[in-house]
Design a protein around this nucleic acid. Sequence first.
DNA 1: CAGTGAGCGAGCTTCCGCTTGACTT
Length: 510
Amino acid sequence: MSKPLVIVESPAKAKTISKFLGDEFVVRASVGHIADLPSKGLSVDVENSFKPNYELTERGATIVRELKAELKNASVLYLATDEDREGEAIAAHLFEYLKPKVETKRMVFHEITKAAIDEAIAHPRNIDMKLVDAAEARRILDRLFGYEVSPILWRKVNRGLSAGRVQSPAIRLVVEREQERMAHVSAAYWDLEAATTTDPKFTATLQSLDGKRIATGKDFDSLGVAKDGIVVINEERANQLTAGLQGKSLDVRSVEEKPYRKSPKAPFMTSTLQQEGGNKLRITASEVMRLAQGLYEAGYITYMRTDAVILGAEALGAVRDEIINTYGDKFLATEPRVYKSKVKNAQEAHEAIRPSLPLRSPESLADELRPNELALYRLIWQRTLASQMSDTNGTTVTVKMGTVSAGTAPADCEFSASGTAISFPGYRQVYQEIADENEDEKEALLPALKVGDSVGIESITANGHNTSPPARYTEPTLVKRLEEEGIGRPSTYASILGTIINRGYVWKKG
DNA sequence: CAGTGAGCGAGCTTCCGCTTGACTT
């Protein structure tokens, strides 16, 4: 009996889809690309419209042989590779090498659910040759750049070196950062902290002298020069002021209350998962991918090489139900949150990286998963749930208070302190971000104060600082930058790091 | 005569992106 043959890219995906389609369909995988330019020689006919010389890869030839055998019993062929540039090329290459005698259709879907698969089967399209051309042009360009420039490095620098459209800009980023660090001139500045005698006591920071704002680290440029109109306090001045404030108290000049509100981040895609894996679990980008691959193959999570942050309709419903059931209505975002990828030229052939359906909590999987797998799963679970939860709400109170110092060079000293009281945790019940360096929200509580109150000073501390050069890249920050610049793809972020390290262009320290 | 050195020619390295799985560390 002849059945339709469906070909996807990933074997794990083939298994899942096969469950949805049942015995009436045969589902197989191409296991990635089946054809490529041979590694030997340029394999691009530059004289003849840059015609590429694609050949079946060794594994591709085996796959094609097996697929041809399946095709003998097939009633119709569905090419169901990913709907992105490379997926379209794989579909075209399959068509070219399989030479199917049966009717052939291109089917595409962006989430692996029964509804989405049925819909895809019902509405096939044709292979988009423009997209295939784009994929081949990308391949040709990479070959021309890589294979023309690399030999110059062998001759001029060292054998085995390489250059390419992706690795070379990646190195440039690292080099430029290092040059910035070398050119950086450190500046010294001091600040003053006042500890109060209030209950509860708090710490306020000196903010201005005679109405002029005093310098913090951000006020210096890379040559150590402070911005115009900013006062830099040196050690001597800091000591003068400390002495001049002894025995003084501060008058409250303003109390400002502002609502505090923060929304959750989008669900994971490859780059953000690698970043958070690095930040929170302290594992490398390639280790994150290895663990995610295991979780994906065993059916715990969706596909892990994606630049999309979208939850499919079914997943969205399941996630929102889970929030209601576990945390209650109040923790659910009133409207479904819709996220959009900020990646340049995002192709969005898959969903975000999320737990697969039906949802299983990390706790329920504690016995099935190894510790580091479970940790990564928990991260994905938390981020996915948080993405559909309500905002974190609270109030930020900022108090300004001041007095005139005594002694040498008296000046009006204004101090400032702020504290945020969280009234409703919202998504933070589930997922806590690592604080960005540019937001210094302290969750300290201030006593109730009003304008005109007098606040006693328990002690004044002068602290010396030096501005530091921009930090070197880490794996997570470099991946983030690569993604922002549109360099590389989800399937290659981890290996780019490997390439530039193996060539000896960059090295890891610490 | 034995050892040395110059000169020649052939073969090798490399890109990026899509998949696993077979290797080390």
